[in-house]
Simulated assay, not measured.
Amino acid sequence: MKAKKTIGALFISGAVFGTFAAEGISAEDWALYQEGINPGEVFAEEVGGALFEKPMGPEGKSCASCHTKNGEVEERVATAAAYYPKYDPSCGKVISLEQRIQLCQKKYQGVKPFSLKSKENTALTTYLFYLAAGTPINVDISSPAAKEYYEYGRYVFTLKRGKRHLSCQVCHEFAVGKLLRMQWLKPLGKDPIMGSEGSRAADHWPAFRMTKNKVQTLQQRFIGCQKQAGQKPLPLGSKEMVALELYVKSLSNGVELKTPGLRR
Rank of each mutant, 00 (worst) to 15 (best):
G49H: 00
D140C: 09
H204K: 09
K147I: 01
C168F: 10
E28G: 10
L188G: 00
A15S: 12
K93G: 09
K163D: 04
V156G: 02
A146V: 07
M182I: 15
A123I: 00
P58H: 06
G60Q: 07
A175T: 06
P187R: 08
P260I: 04
W205K: 09
N213V: 14
L128G: 02
V176N: 03
V16Q: 11
S90Q: 15
A229M: 08
I7D: 05
D203M: 14
G110H: 09
R181F: 13
V47K: 11
P136D: 12
C168A: 07
K186V: 09
L244A: 07
L131W: 03
I95M: 02
T68N: 12
W30H: 08
T126H: 02
T211L: 05
L166R: 01
G48I: 01
Q219W: 07
R181I: 12
V248N: 00
M56Y: 11
G254C: 03
R181N: 14
S167Q: 03
I95F: 02
E35C: 07
Q169V: 03
N70I: 01
P192L: 09
V176P: 06
Q220P: 06
P192S: 15
D203N: 15
K163F: 03
G224K: 07
A80I: 12
T125H: 05
A81L: 03
V47R: 05
A175M: 15
P113M: 10
W184G: 07
K61W: 11
T79R: 12
V47C: 10
H67N: 06
P235I: 08
S96I: 10
H204S: 13
K112H: 11
L244N: 04
D29W: 06
I193S: 03
T259R: 08
A243H: 06
Y130Q: 04
P192C: 05
K61I: 13
R221G: 07
I12K: 15
E197A: 14
T217A: 02
P39S: 12
G60M: 02
Y152V: 00
I95R: 04
K232M: 14
H204T: 13
R221M: 07
G48P: 04
S199V: 07
G24D: 06
Q219M: 12
M56H: 09
